[in-house]
Design a binder for these strands. Sequence first.
RNA 1: GCCGUCGUAGCUCAGGGGUAGAGCACGUCAUUGGUAAUGACGGGGUCGGCGGUUCAAUUCCGCCCGACGGCACCA
Length: 637
Amino acid sequence: MVLITLPDGSTRQFDGPVSGADLAADIGPGLAKAALAIRINGEMVDLATVIEEDSNVSIVTVKDEDALELLRHDCAHVLAQAVQDLFPGTQVTIGPSIENGFYYDFAREKPFTPEDLPKIEARMAEIVDEDLPFKRSVMDRNDAITFFEGKGEAYKAELIQDLPEGEEISLYSQGDWIDLCRGPHLPSTGKLGKAFKLMSIAGAYWRGDSRNAMLQRIYGTCWPDPKKLKAYLHMLEEAEKRDHRRLGREMSLFHIQEEAAGSVFWHPKGWTLYRAVQDYMRKRLDDAGYVEVNTPQLVDRSLWEKSGHWEKFREHMFITEVEEKLLAIKPMNCPCHVQIFRQGIKSYRDLPIRMAEFGSCHRNEPSGALHGIMRVRAFTQDDAHIFCTEDQITSETKIFIDLLMSVYKDLGFDEVVVKFSDRPEVRAGEDATWDKAEIALTEATAAAGLETILNPGEGAFYGPKLEFVLRDAIGRDWQCGTLQVDFVLPERLDAAYIGEDGEKHRPVMLHRAILGSFERFLGILIENHAGRFPLWLAPVQAVVTAITNDHDEYAQKVYDTMKAAGLRCEIDLRNEKINYKVREHSHAKVPAILVVGGRESENNTVAMRRLGSQQQEVVALNEAVAKLRTEAAGPLG
RNA sequence: GCCGUCGUAGCUCAGGGGUAGAGCACGUCAUUGGUAAUGACGGGGUCGGCGGUUCAAUUCCGCCCGACGGCACCA
């Protein structure tokens, strides 16, 4: 007797062991058809799995979130079969489901070409039409190794080799194609449907290690139905439209050119945006008790040796020679900030010192890592170092987190995830010190009411860190802020303060950034707003234009009034139709268009049209200016 | 750095062994039009760079640079 409890609490009794498929059929023919897998006591297994004991069982259908993962994993298998059918001699390796799809890594002498993808897709569709059942079988570990080696599948054999001795190896077959796989799978390839698409080809190192061979990866996307596939492809198109590189060009914010790969040429409009963010940050830091400094770009090797950068970071540093001395362009600001701290004698009464710099840094990033303005070689951090006592770590962290959250909110980001990285295996400092630092950070995040995700062993060698990840308007995650506790650098660079006891003590340094780098953050900001910035950030806040040239004089008066009120305004007196001008300035994403004609000039009004609206509002000039001015003041009022 | 793709006008792209083409943008002229494209005409290119093959290369081949999609990296 087997007693099965369903999710709604109802039970069904069977005379003996029963398969998932039989159970579904017993419940109803509709469900039998829709069933893709079952979950026994929470664990997802094949529909064909025989339930031997009394269990809680649920039937997984396409409506189930987890079904998507099955679907995508199956799609990867079908891809692998199609590839091996079409390209004999290609070895299979791994093919997991990932967000929005799946990939499969193949070992093959000759890389795939984009033209191969449609052919592979066509073969995949045939395999789906064949409706081949996925069949699970098990094999002894050694037999499995021999089996895959015999097939010339060296990578699979290596994977099995690494599984523990005595482990049962499961294999799945579809038709005469067979693969090592933990499962579970759908009942048959026909259940997969055809809402999939191969997206791209890429190189990927075997086991993610750059010392290993490079495999050929094929990425695909897969959905329960064609409608969802279409929606996903549409979302990709929309994301492309807000790509900061595209908007940067279209809106003339910045450009990058060959001769300065990895560095940004900021155009007037982009620089205006940059300054708006920088001015805002400067004000926030000032209010939060920071002092602002500025430190050298070129610093002698000896300082980098003392700080440890010469040893640990040299390959990322740009080094130059001047009069037989080696100088490095600073990749970080911290050693320089310690130099300022070291000037004069510091008392415990001076702490904490919150030293900020919009620090321009250069790092020699690998060419393949460069990406628009998001990953560059020359960038400016909103960097600061808080020199404090160990006792102040918790309170300073709490204050910092509150500041950071408030800044993100002002800039349009409400969702923030915090990662906590604790001690790595290779580290400097005593365990007792690490205990103290980790506890201090934990307490601070708790006091700030934050939940954190633990990133075990991912801390810096000198101390634990918090990483702040924000989610943008279309659900993408970006790591921006950070806070790192550092006991090592003050020691290496001999920073000290005089304590209450009259003795010298080491301060702790908190390395912290909110935006991370301006370049990267502005890239995120552009994409988050899709270029349609709130008025306080918009490079051009308003354009004044006239219906005909007869009203140019009044338009000029409106423009002058706007300028005098401190608004970033442009005037468009071109001899063009109003439709044309409205269209053009709307495309340029200007938040406010002020149109004036005979009626407006007579009444001292403007017809104001806000971006995104199809209508305009006629208001008194002084009223319009006052309104825009308030809005342009931004979150700081 | 590694694998792949790409590089033609300001932008988006077509073309192809015999010194290049479209749309938009730009300029000139006409037009003065009430809220998302007025019309006509015109200017504009060392076809990413350097070599090679060829009577002839933007086109074919090689190397280099850069961008893009990934991988690795993000200290």
